[in-house]
Amino acid sequence: MPGLYLLAILLSAAGVAALDRRFRLAAFRNPRRTWIAVAVGTAFFLVWDAVGIATGVFVKGGSDLLLGLDLAPHLPVEEPVFLAFLCYLAVVSWEAAMSFTESR
């Protein structure tokens, strides 16, 4: 089913955002800092992907779960969305860990 992977990423991001909102961990406490960290991390990993694609290390496999739209050769549209989700999850996880250790 095309788009299922993107839908799974977006649903997962919504779950992380709900936890972030409930506990005011990252974007709901300091949105500017959070989105800068997500943007910088996403850009870093996109450059990493570009280098991997250029050297032939990364190739896009075939899957019926992808939309089938590519931003560049071997770079599906889902990749930057996933990378942004990964960075957001890392920031929220870090803030949750810091919040937990500070409360002890």
Score class of each variant (00 low, 15 high):
Pro80Leu: 11
Cys87Lys: 00
Leu75Ala: 12
Thr42Leu: 03
Ser12Arg: 01
Asp70Pro: 05
Phe28Ile: 02
Pro31His: 08
Pro76His: 05
Val91Gln: 00
Val92Trp: 10
Ala17Pro: 00
Asp64Cys: 04
Ala39Gln: 07
Pro73Asp: 12
Ala26Cys: 11
Glu78Asp: 08
Ala54Gly: 12
Ala43Thr: 02
Val16His: 00
Phe85Lys: 00
Val51His: 05
Ala13Trp: 14
Lys60Arg: 14
Ala43Tyr: 01
Leu7Asp: 04
Asp49Pro: 06
Ser103Cys: 10
Lys60Gln: 13
Ile53Pro: 04
Leu11Pro: 05
Lys60Thr: 11
Asn30Gln: 15
Gly62His: 14
Pro76Asp: 03
Leu83Thr: 00
Leu11Asp: 06
Gly68Arg: 12
Ala13Val: 15
Ser103His: 14
Asp20Val: 03
Ser93Asp: 05
Arg21Cys: 10
Ala17Trp: 10
Pro2Glu: 09
Leu86His: 10
Ser99Asp: 12
Ala17Phe: 10
Arg104Leu: 14
Val16Glu: 09
Phe45Lys: 07
Ile9Phe: 09
Ala26Ile: 10
Asp20His: 07
Ser63Ala: 15
Ala54Asn: 10
Phe100Ser: 03
Leu69Ile: 15
Ala72Pro: 05
Ala26Asn: 02
Asp70Tyr: 06
Arg33Lys: 13
Leu83Met: 13
Pro80Asp: 06
Val59Phe: 06
Ala18Gln: 11
Arg24Asp: 13
Leu65Asp: 11
Phe82Asn: 03
Leu65Asn: 09
Gly68Ala: 10
Trp94Lys: 05
Ala13His: 07
Leu66Ile: 07
Phe100Asn: 01
Trp94Asp: 03
Leu89Thr: 05
